[in-house]
Design a protein around this nucleic acid. Structure first.
Lengths: 162, 162
DNA sequence: TCAAATTGTTTTAAGCTTGAAATTTTAGGG
DNA sequence: CCCTAAAATTTCAAGCTTAAAACAATTTGA
């Protein structure tokens, strides 16, 4: 009969939720720090750039700047700057939208797609290693618990419900 | 026999881990965004300030600046700026360390302690609401899965092992 | 038709974060 | 005692992020 060390017996549910939140934060921050370091040291890039490339890779025809910022849940101004940099590096480009002269589609270039394929494979490998303690069964159980959180307070758009 | 919608049958373990990582990230980012908004709109403060106050509240005698940055896993320069701001607001102060003139202890003032008590209670309430879908049993199960991740790649200092 | 509202994007100002350089002080040989 | 290395902290430059303002183009409705 083994009880987690930091789980006091009479702990209220509220305190228990606070504890698991701190653990969630620590896990995600730890993994994210490692991913950022790998992207910087092994590929000379950053997580925001990877995120944008990842989004654009999912939409080969490109994404309007505003759709990109909605999809990534960051500000419009933010994606403007990131796409600017990717464009300077020849990894992305903007194409005009014929029927709406305000809008632009951001797309990956061939070079950008190739660079992303490489990054994506390594990224998956890094995550696979960082989560190598989790079995398939663990992954499903963890996923189910996260769904409870997501379904309750984050709707499809990722915004907090109500 | 119900299968999670996004879990393809023949999915490799590596892909499954990648999926759960993205879900972890989405959950934490969603909660963190809500906490930041609450701190800003309802208390006129920020998450980094709350984190520093929370650390100092745990150590009534104060913490050396370097211990504070180690504890919070942020850079030295970062805590310098945050403690500067808290000090300007009368919530924290720096006291000299007699035996080492290089070092300083950061401490909460009485005002800082009072402000933190208020913040901490609200913070716990917010988390309790955001995680209200999780039962005590869910919390323990989730906690156990996070321990697997933390034990495997984040040691006590929070740095990635090996 | 045309003024007002809305939409798409960029610019800007401010704050956060980091890593590296600079500063000050302490500790350890020789 | 001195000189070098190490440690504690701050300063600095660069990049990321956001919210708000500015700008441009489109849509709406009177």
């Amino acid at each position: 009969m083994k009880t987690p060390a930091q789980a006091p017996k009479g702990e209220t549910l509220s305190k228990a939720r606070l504890r698991v939140w701190l653990k969630l934060l620590k896990s995600v921050n730890g993994i994210e720090t490692e991913i950022r370091r790998n992207l910087r040291d092994r590929h000379g890039t950053t997580l925001p750039r990877f995120d944008v490339m990842s989004a654009l890779a999912r939409f080969p025809d490109g994404l309007k700047m505003s759709d990109l910022s909605t999809y990534l849940k960051v500000s419009n101004g933010n994606v403007t700057g990131i796409v600017d940099k990717l464009t300077e590096e020849g990894l992305a480009l903007r194409v005009a939208v014929p029927e709406d002269r305000r809008a632009q589609m951001a797309r990956l270039t061939a070079k950008g797609r190739a660079a992303f394929e490489e990054l994506a494979q390594h990224h998956e490998d890094w995550i696979n290693t960082l989560l190598d303690g989790l079995t398939a069964r663990d992954v499903e159980a963890l996923s189910a618990h996260l769904d409870i959180i997501l379904d309750r307070h984050m709707d499809e758009d990722g915004r907090d419900a109500q």
